[in-house]
Simulated assay, not measured.
Amino acid sequence: MITRPTSNSDGNRAGAVVFEHVRKNFGTFTAIPDLSLTIEPGTLVTLLGPSGCGKTTTLRMLAGLEHPTSGRILIGGKDVTMLPANERDVSMVFQSYALFPHMSVLENVAYGLESSGLKAREARKKAEEGLAQVGLAGYGDRLPAELSGGQQQRVAVARALVLEPQVLLLDEPLSNLDARLRRRVRTEIRELQQRLGFTAVYVTHDQEEALAVSDRIIVMVEGRIEQEGPPRDLYEMPTSAFIADFMGEANVVACEVLKIEGRDALIRVGRLDHRVPARDAVAGPAKLAVRPNAIKLGLADDAAFAGRIKHAAYLGDHVEYEVETDIGTLFVVDPATERCFEPAARVGIGFENRGIALINA
Rank of each mutant, 00 (worst) to 15 (best):
residue 282 V to Q: 15
residue 36 S to M: 02
residue 10 D to S: 14
residue 335 P to Q: 11
residue 208 E to D: 10
residue 301 D to I: 06
residue 304 A to P: 00
residue 25 N to R: 15
residue 202 Y to A: 02
residue 218 I to D: 03
residue 139 Y to H: 15
residue 73 I to F: 00
residue 305 F to Y: 11
residue 197 G to C: 12
residue 231 P to E: 03
residue 280 D to P: 08
residue 35 L to C: 10
residue 104 S to D: 06
residue 210 A to T: 10
residue 299 L to C: 01
residue 217 I to A: 07
residue 242 F to E: 04
residue 283 A to R: 14
residue 332 V to S: 12
residue 342 E to Y: 01
residue 36 S to A: 07
residue 259 K to L: 10
residue 199 T to W: 02
residue 12 N to A: 14
residue 46 T to L: 03
residue 125 K to P: 05
residue 298 G to Y: 00
residue 72 R to I: 02
residue 228 E to I: 02
residue 147 L to S: 03
residue 268 R to Y: 10
residue 216 R to Q: 15
residue 72 R to G: 00
residue 39 I to C: 08
residue 107 E to W: 06
residue 21 H to R: 15
residue 134 V to Y: 11
residue 154 R to W: 03
residue 44 L to K: 05
residue 59 L to V: 01
residue 192 L to D: 01
residue 237 M to L: 04
residue 189 I to N: 11
residue 53 C to F: 01
residue 254 A to Q: 14
residue 71 G to M: 09
residue 288 L to E: 11
residue 263 R to M: 04
residue 238 P to K: 04
residue 105 V to W: 03
residue 223 G to L: 13
residue 33 P to I: 13
residue 116 S to H: 06
residue 1 M to R: 03
residue 286 A to N: 07
residue 358 L to N: 09
residue 13 R to V: 13
residue 29 F to R: 13
residue 183 R to W: 10
residue 10 D to L: 14
residue 138 G to E: 12
residue 308 R to S: 10
residue 107 E to T: 08
residue 201 V to R: 00
residue 143 L to E: 10
residue 181 L to W: 05
residue 246 F to R: 01
residue 188 E to V: 10
residue 90 V to Q: 10
residue 144 P to Q: 07
residue 138 G to L: 12
residue 118 L to N: 05
residue 234 L to W: 03
residue 130 G to E: 07
residue 21 H to I: 06
residue 93 V to H: 07
residue 110 A to V: 11
residue 298 G to R: 00
residue 270 G to A: 09
residue 292 P to L: 05
residue 56 T to N: 05
residue 200 A to L: 03
residue 223 G to K: 11
residue 153 Q to I: 08
residue 294 A to H: 05
residue 251 N to E: 09
residue 221 V to I: 14
residue 28 T to I: 14
residue 165 P to N: 04
residue 301 D to V: 06
residue 280 D to S: 15
residue 245 D to G: 04
residue 323 V to A: 02
residue 79 D to F: 09
residue 267 I to M: 13
